[in-house]
Design a protein around this nucleic acid. Structure first.
Lengths: 360, 360
DNA sequence: ATGAAAGCGCTAACAT
DNA sequence: ATGTTAGCGCTTTCAT
């Protein structure tokens, strides 16, 4: 870890490089041009009240004519805070986080902060580096979205700056955590399917994916509670399209063959959908299908997947609110918020066919 | 614009807030603990060679025991450069940019820089603010991905820091531009369809979307060149699923009815695909379909869309390379790079049916 | 209402 | 090989 922190600057960076010919104007340039002290310029820039109208105008005019732009680096150094919150997204390819980011951004702006996004591209090492970068940049707080970081690494970071985690139920009391109730989501899927009359309801698991184990727990407990425990069957999967396809292939050969499947995320569900149709069956006539996450994919008319929705935007908003609270009140304790998911019924679920054994 | 720049700090920020009880350790703390001067610590931190092994060890030990982490803010202030490049993504919901970001990140890292991502959420004002933030943060360079900013705003920024634009053919000589050749892409789609034997080839336009007008130009020129100019027909659209659906509805009623359609992006193509099937026709039997962008959507087995691929990752890499070049050599001139797209044939295109008029 | 001065944490000459 | 010194551009007392 220390190696990531120290001595990591490329050598050539130490040699002098071509320099900008003219430096950008500073507060001193503005002060001179306006014929005032630099403190006065600083006051005007920060919108302090106690400044006469005449000097305010003079300063603004000078600043504008010079094209002056406050240097946030210098400001942050003296204020010892940057007013920006770093956000580490494990995987920007996962559209799930885009909406969480909307929530984060809105809440940050409301508090006078801005977010700076970095990504680790699913690589824990790169993520750790991104974290270190944000820490060195002295971000006032850090949000981890779908982080694949080791808890110890996160705990260490949480000791120097407030940290919030979204999208995964991170096992750490020192960080704010905002998640959707994946257990409840799994139950919701089963209850919907059982309510339609399905008995033989299988699941395609999400493996190591965030929330996967909770979703499976919800599936299993609901099956048991509804007296369907003996019909429960979980196929391995991994949150991918291919995983969904393979899971379905095995399920289609099972006896009794399930009449409904709960896939642990939308992508796997789409893979399942495709494999079912390729095998000559129809959805939902021959088999019902429920996904998870309510991504844009599920909403496509061409797919119209029944799925479980996570309040993504709200997750982002709450996480940022908790984080800002701790930034401004360092003694406040971190909290864990679990939000209820909600079923979105579309076109891939229907009652099972009368005949118990569907055929092509 | 000046209003975005000055006096925008919320008033409460000026009051004192709860402070961290213990400040993070500085280079001076490390120096004291190690019994050396702070310059020596600085040297060790930056990995300079001319340091004796013994003092290096002492410094590292001291730094580690204190949990010291270099302050990039202070470092940037004195070096007058931050070694980070700001990236403004117009819309993080658009997965197209995720891969461009990969390329940007890789090339930045190779040059010893890091990227900081911000977003304007499709709102030009928010984008302008993000730009201002990055400028105040003194990013060494800025990349605009799918920017909706006014050319004057961009030109102004380009005067104080190198700027690169990706994904849209920005009309500005002062910025590096890296784009896919949308005209050629449009031609590719038509050539493929015509090669299969289609004559009546329609297009669903992309409206104001980035690259849309070039794609249409390519479509039109290829149709003319192939002697199909009279069969050309362009329906309005807007890069959305709904736009694709509506475009197809009108096309299905046209006489003669086209046997192939080129949609200006994948999302519109998926909308078209859905509407075609809903109307009782089959793809590609009754109608062939080509999209644009080769997004993850197109690659889904359930969709398997023939489409035009943009070298997204390469676009990112080249843009960053050009930008870094100008950062390190301020006198270098900005350049414009146009990359060739490439057709990806999947399952939505086939020769037209023998009967000239397909029926349900 | 305004200015002078100190200092944020660090790097970069310039000594030695 | 190491230390001393002078800033980087800004905010913030403290005077006036």
């Amino acid at each position: 870890m220390s190696s990531a922190r120290f001595g990591s600057i490329p050598e050539d960076r130490q040699k002098t490089r071509d320099r900008q010919l003219s430096r950008p104007p500073t507060i001193v340039d503005v002060a001179e041009r306006a014929g005032v002290s630099k403190s006065l310029v600083s006051r005007v820039m920060r919108g302090e009240r106690a400044v006469s109208a005449s000097s305010r105008e003079a300063v603004i005019a000078a600043a504008e004519s010079l094209g002056y732009r406050p240097n946030a680096v210098a400001r942050s150094l003296v204020q010892r805070r940057t007013f920006n919150v770093g956000v580490i997204i494990s995987d920007l390819h996962n559209i799930f986080f885009a909406e969480v980011l909307d929530g984060l951004g809105v809440a940050a702006a409301a508090g006078g902060y801005r977010i700076l996004i970095t990504t680790g591209n699913r690589d824990p090492d790169a993520e750790a580096q991104a974290l270190e970068q944000l820490l060195q940049l002295r971000a006032d707080g850090i949000v981890l979205a779908g982080a694949r970081l080791q808890p110890e690494v996160v705990a260490a970071a949480a000791r120097s700056v407030p940290v919030a985690v979204v999208g995964s139920n991170f096992p750490l009391a020192e960080v704010d955590v905002v998640v959707n109730d994946d257990v409840r989501g799994g139950e919701l899927a089963v209850e919907h399917l059982a309510g339609l009359g399905h008995v033989c309801i299988a699941m395609i698991d999400g493996g190591e994916g965030a929330g996967a184990s909770d979703r499976r727990a919800g599936y299993e407990s609901a099956m048991r509670r509804l007296g369907l425990g003996r019909q429960a069957r979980v196929e391995p999967g991994d949150f991918t399209e291919a995983g969904g396809r393979e899971g379905i292939r095995r399920l289609l050969e099972a006896r009794p063959r399930p009449t409904a499947v709960f896939a642990s995320n939308d992508l796997a569900a789409v893979g399942a959908l495709n494999a079912i149709e390729e095998a000559g069956y129809q959805v939902p006539r021959d088999m019902s299908l429920v996904g998870y996450d309510n991504t844009a994919l599920a909403a496509l008319r061409h797919i119209s997947l029944t799925t479980v929705n996570q309040p993504r935007r709200q997750i982002g908003e709450l996480a940022m609110a908790s984080l800002l609270r701790r930034i401004e009140h360092p003694t406040a304790r971190a909290r864990r918020q679990v939000l209820p998911p909600e079923l979105v019924v579309r076109a891939t679920t229907a009652p099972p066919r009368a005949s118990s054994s569907p055929s092509p």
